[in-house]
Simulated assay, not measured.
Amino acid sequence: MTSEQDDQTYALLAQLAVEALNLASTSSTIAMPADGPAFALRFLPEFRDQLLRVEALATAVLRASGVPWDFLADSYGVTRQSLHRRLADEVRLWKDFSPQYVDLALTEAKKYAREVRKNGQSFETNLEGALAAAVPVWEKRREQGNWRPDL
């Protein structure tokens, strides 16, 4: 591998860390008992987009490392052509984009890691309490009738 290829792989891995940790942060927020379900309603389209970015970046890393489209397609149970048609443009964009923003990616990844850690610690220390406290909140909303989350 050349230094340029190493730099590109590093940049792609940094961007993958951003997107994967962003996805984890969104997931941990959705898991919050009192407001997570309402949050999910608002952010599920973005959640799907985050998941697609993670998929494209993981594919970009694998492709940059020499993994052929045939192998990737076999993992999905689809043809090489269909996987290539679906992901090639985005993989190419990430390969071009990622090296320009490595420092930003590292900063963002650390920010999302802190959010995931904070939510994880909250779940670890007080999940049962948060679940119990959320039940009356949801009951009150149900009794209100026609309650809608602020989106």
Rank of each mutant, 00 (worst) to 15 (best):
V54Y: 00
L62T: 05
Y10A: 12
V61C: 11
L23S: 12
S25Q: 03
L44E: 08
A38R: 10
R42Y: 08
N22E: 14
N22F: 06
L12C: 10
V18C: 02
A14F: 00
L52G: 11
M32K: 11
S28H: 06
A24G: 08
A58M: 01
E55C: 07
F39C: 02
P33D: 11
L41F: 05
E19G: 06
Q15R: 14
A24R: 12
L13F: 06
T59Y: 04
S28L: 15
F39H: 14
E19V: 04
A38D: 15
L44R: 02
A64T: 03
A34Y: 01
A58V: 04
A24Q: 12
P37W: 10
A11S: 06
S27N: 02
A17F: 02
L57Y: 01
A11G: 03
A58E: 06
M32D: 13
D49E: 10
T26N: 13
S65N: 13
V54E: 00
D49W: 03
V61P: 04
A38I: 01
A38S: 14
P37F: 08
T26L: 15
A31P: 07
A31K: 08
A56H: 11
F47H: 14
N22K: 10
A34E: 15
F39Q: 06
P45R: 04
A56G: 12
L23C: 04
E19L: 01
P33Q: 01
P37Q: 08
L13P: 00
R53M: 07
V61H: 05
R48A: 15
L41V: 07
L51H: 10
A34N: 07
A60H: 09
A34P: 03
I30C: 12
A24C: 15
V18G: 01
T26S: 11
L44G: 01
V61E: 10
A40F: 07
S65F: 01
T59M: 10
D49F: 05
A14N: 08
A60V: 11
Q15W: 00
D35S: 13
V18P: 10
I30E: 13
L57V: 05
A11P: 14
T29N: 02
V61G: 05
E55I: 10
E55V: 14
A64N: 13
L21P: 02
R42Q: 10
T59K: 02
F43H: 01
A40G: 12
L21D: 11
E46L: 07
A60F: 07
G36P: 04
A34G: 06
A11C: 07
R42A: 13
R48F: 08
A20D: 01
S28F: 09
